[in-house]
Write a protein that binds this DNA or RNA. Structure first.
Lengths: 97, 97
DNA sequence: ACTACCGTTGGATGTTCATCAAACAATCGT
DNA sequence: ACGATTGTTTGATGAACATCCAACGGTAGT
């Protein structure tokens, strides 16, 4: 359980940033999204976005697939829900329809 | 909703630390706890604990009441559950009975 | 009143982090 | 093959952070 906590801390640290939180919230729709600059317009430099994507990937939050010159990012929803039940849901906010 | 997100980021940053996460998890039992050094034995200095308690309080996670020379800390469970439904529950871990 | 206890404050330090800038790498269209 | 597009890498920089230490301020006990 201490292991789980360490992993949880890493996930929380990854998500404890305005930009990265928004990325996760957007990715929570279940669909894969591109890393294209037009798509994620936060007024920060390209390399900064690369940095954020790296943090998210290394924390186990996302999976990146490369096709040609476009990289596609995707939330590992299943693994996350299994490991940290309710976390993503709580991060996305109340979507209750 | 952007305001909510900023507050959420602050809460997440507060909780994205091994020591502070453990504090919140312990406090999640609903009972108030003292700040006494014997109670929270993480091998760090007194003032470091003061620092962590301050972060938690300023993020709106805890409430501190002073009685005499002992300070008592308590999780603001109601406010947190109202504002960020499911978050604390997700942080504490799977309690599923 | 003096001492022990509980906790905070302020300063100092080393580390981590978010950001930018410039250079590089790979791929697509023509 | 050439230029444009998409991302990454590396280095630099300033801010934030976790930690310790010493000193301080109340409070309780005797």
């Amino acid at each position: 359980m201490a292991d789980e906590d360490a992993a949880l801390v890493e996930v929380l640290r990854a998500v404890a940033d305005p930009i990265r939180l928004r990325i996760v919230q957007t990715l929570a729709d279940g669909h894969p999204h591109g890393k294209c600059g037009t798509h994620w317009d936060f007024g920060v430099h390209k390399s900064t976005m690369t940095h954020h994507f790296r943090i998210l990937r290394e924390a186990g939050l996302t999976r990146t697939t490369v096709t040609g010159r476009t990289h596609t990012i995707e939330l590992r929803r299943d693994e996350l829900d299994a490991r940290f039940p309710g976390l993503i849901q709580a991060l996305v906010g109340v979507v209750d329809l």
